[in-house]
Write a protein that binds this DNA or RNA. Structure first.
Length: 263
DNA sequence: ATGGTAGCGCTGCTA
């Protein structure tokens, strides 16, 4: 089973690259974030032509999450199961069951600036994600929480920890909120298989040639339950996709994260 | 040099 997650920064702008990447890498399940698409505009036919069922939760313009699967796509749940918990106007979570595993595609709020209302909402959103796992996933079951967490888990996950000390994405409270999600019973398998930093980064600012200067962050994660994590044989970031070239057009500012599990 | 790039969409916001 090959599972991947990718913030595409507009599916409309990236469709050719996504199709090429799917064809080349053949994921069984692919979580997408920042589709910036309405459900009506989501290109389900294009993915069906590649052999994938798909589900999307989006309202256009901003946010938007999707799951593609060629191993079944059932029990699709847009948003949190209890919509009273979080403002339902921002489509940032989509869950589905694929080959017996509960898959969550998550786009955590950016937070903008430490201490802002958006930052406080980000912390609340992460707390609700933990509650979602508590109330919808059984301990010991196959669960993968994949997406753009907009948090760098520790200092190995940023290019220059000193210059970012206390900033958004690396603040203590954000990291604690992320640890709260992980503490449900998840493992950060890319980090486990790549213990040395800095990196592997999954996001680079479009500005200032950050990618080529190696100034990125690791904020896109595949968090796997124990039952899935012990089957992992490969987990990595596909930096090649972040380069301009072969697939044509401008790349997303995020690279895909890929996990390969036995059976 | 207090900037820069990209997407959406047509004005300025979001990241």
């Amino acid at each position: 089973m090959r599972l991947a997650t990718w913030n595409v920064n507009s599916l409309k702008a990236r469709l050719t690259r996504v199709e090429a990447w799917v064809g080349a890498h053949q994921p069984d399940v692919l979580c997408l974030q920042e589709t910036k698409a309405t459900d009506a505009a989501f290109p389900s036919a294009a993915f069906a032509a590649l052999g994938y069922e798909s589900a999307h939760h989006g309202s256009g313009r901003w946010n938007g999450v999707a799951i593609l699967s060629r191993v079944g796509l059932d029990e699709v749940q847009p948003g949190f199961h209890d919509e009273d918990r979080v403002d339902a106007s921002e489509p940032r979570l989509l869950s589905a069951t694929c080959a017996g595993a509960r898959i969550l595609s998550a786009y955590v709020p950016n937070g903008r600036a430490v201490g802002s209302p958006f930052y406080e909402a980000k912390l609340v959103w992460l707390a609700h994600l933990r509650q979602e796992l508590d109330s919808t996933c059984a301990a010991g079951s196959d669960v993968a929480v994949c997406g753009d967490f907009n948090v760098a888990p520790d200092d190995r996950d940023v290019w220059d920890p000193g210059s970012l000390d206390g900033a958004t994405h690396v603040s203590q409270a954000e990291r604690e909120a992320l640890r709260g999600v992980v503490a449900w019973g998840l493992r950060d398998v890319v980090r486990e298989l790549t213990p040395d930093g800095p990196g592997p980064f999954s996001w680079w600012d479009y500005r200032g040639g950050a990618f080529h200067k190696g100034e990125g962050m690791r904020i896109d994660l595949a968090l796997l339950s124990e039952s899935l994590a012990r089957r992992v044989r490969l987990a990595y970031v596909d930096r090649e996709e972040r380069k301009r070239g072969a697939s044509g057009g401008v790349p997303s500012d995020h690279a895909p994260v890929v996990v390969e599990m036995e059976c």
